[in-house]
Computed example of a mutant assay.
Amino acid sequence: MGEAAYITGLQHVGIPTNDLEATIAFYTSLGFEVALRTGNPKADEQVCFLTLGNLCIETYENGCAVGKPGAVDHIALNVTDIEGAFREAKRAGRTLLDQEVQFLPFWEKGVRFFTILGPNGEKVEFCQKL
């Protein structure tokens, strides 16, 4: 079956920042709207999701953004069944960065996700909004 059976499209692109306010100002000047502003208690980071049409950027202030080309941290794929996708990723022998499905209290009911490593060192997150 494979992970593709659970993927419905791009969920978001993760961009770390050292200045959340400047990042929000930049993207809103391009027409993006703040969809959710919250915190990630596990990482002690402030987080903002910005949307424009069907594009979503998750930016988070982590104090260690590299600030040069190649600085996008991850892409997240929207999935319909996080447990099924996780099972398939393990079966396929993917390099798992999370040993179990994670949870964060983002959005109304939270999100469940896990991350794998791509062939170029990129992080690919599988994400299901609850």
Rank of each mutant, 00 (worst) to 15 (best):
A4D: 06
T8E: 05
G14H: 02
I15L: 06
T17D: 02
D19E: 12
D19F: 15
A22I: 13
F26P: 13
Y27Q: 00
T28L: 00
S29E: 02
S29T: 00
F32I: 01
V34H: 04
V34E: 15
V34I: 13
R37A: 08
R37Q: 13
R37C: 09
G39V: 09
G39M: 12
D44K: 07
D44Y: 03
D44I: 04
V47Y: 08
L50W: 07
L52I: 07
G53E: 00
C56V: 15
I57S: 04
E58T: 04
E58V: 03
Y60G: 06
E61W: 05
I75V: 00
I75P: 01
L77A: 07
T80W: 08
I82D: 04
I82P: 00
G84E: 05
G84A: 01
A85L: 00
E88L: 15
E88K: 15
A89W: 02
T95P: 08
T95E: 09
L96A: 01
Q99A: 10
F103H: 12
F106M: 14
F106W: 15
W107P: 15
E108K: 13
E108D: 15
V111A: 14
V111L: 14
T115D: 13
I116P: 15
I116R: 11
L117Y: 01
L117M: 02
P119F: 15
N120Q: 08
E122T: 04
K123Y: 09
V124E: 15
E125I: 02
C127Q: 07
C127M: 08
L130K: 12
